[in-house]
Amino acid sequence: MSLERSTDWLRGWYGRALYQLCQSWALLGGVVLVALMVMSLVSIFGRKLFSAPVHGDIELMEMGAAVAIAAFLPLCEMRGHHIKVDAFTAWLPRVVSRYLDALAHLCCALAALILTWRTGLQMLDSREYGDVTTLLSVPLWIPLLMILPSLVLLAMAALLRSYLCVTDQQGRDEG
């Protein structure tokens, strides 16, 4: 379920472009995750062998994980793989479940937009009040700002998904 898929079923160029964008964005998040893994290794071996852990390792992990995980969200939506319960709707005619799915993706888009809005406000608030992390004093608005594009991308992917459901071109990925 993790292998890459062709994007041929996406008819419009914008669909393919968005799919590629989500995929590249997730890869970037993956690179951040690998970097965190390495940082964690350096920290534990530094601590064990030289009593010198990476300064502020926990904070780095927290900020990095938030940025990486947020970057993963759009790809999963683009592929239509977010968890849902379909045991009750399996018997419905295809056209009905298509419109239900369109509704689901619309809700997801709405949720993503609301989270973008509120996280954006939080970012501004953090800037104004000068929130920083405990040991490294990294301003918190920076990681907050870095998860915003992911949330926007999630909303865009969800809107596209919803449109694809309405126009009956979900492709092989859905469900």
Binding site: R47, S51, A52, P53, G56, I58, E59, T134, L135
Partner: peptide
């Protein structure tokens, strides 16, 4: 020297560092 101590806030982390130990936050 070389001790790892848990610090509960910023000032105590800086104190631990100044005393030659390693502050760990958790």
């Amino acid at each position: 020297k070389d001790m790892k101590l848990r610090a509960s806030n910023r000032s105590s982390a800086k104190l631990i560092e100044a005393l030659g130990a390693t502050p760990v936050s958790m």
